[in-house]
Design a protein around this nucleic acid. Structure first.
Length: 107
DNA sequence: GGTCTGACTAGGT
DNA sequence: AACCTAGCCAGAC
């Protein structure tokens, strides 16, 4: 397991319940603003369910998940269970959250 | 060690 | 507003 993965997981764990963060935001916190794609790559291989990966969405708020065993619908349910409103676009083919309201803001 | 791929993004059509 | 393109970085081969 590379340091990069560890950093990503550690940062994702810090996202408060009921909030979401973008891939780019995570990357910025790691010190590499341009490595948003790599953040997604790390989340793809999340080792345990102890990590709130569902709180990470694209910068536009879309649930652009691509995982063999987990669907965007599962992510939607997880977010809603934390009080995050998830809207459905294009007849449930794509979900998204309101970043203005729910994006993780550092204090 | 070069190439390809992708849970990304910002900017342009 | 939906779609396309070009940069980015880390992993897999």
């Amino acid at each position: 397991m590379s340091d990069f993965y560890q950093k990503v997981y550690a940062t994702v764990k810090k996202i408060p319940k009921g909030n979401v963060a973008s891939y780019g935001q995570i990357a910025t916190l790691l010190g590499n603003p341009m490595s948003a794609r790599s953040v997604g790559w790390a989340l793809r291989a999340v080792p345990d369910s102890d990590i709130p990966w569902h709180r990470v969405v694209s910068s536009s708020g879309h649930l652009t998940i691509a995982h063999p065993d987990v669907s965007a619908e599962s992510q939607k349910l997880l977010l809603e269970s934390e009080g995050v409103t998830v809207t459905a676009d294009n007849k449930n083919k794509l979900f998204k959250v309101d970043m203005i309201t729910y994006q993780w803001k550092l204090s």
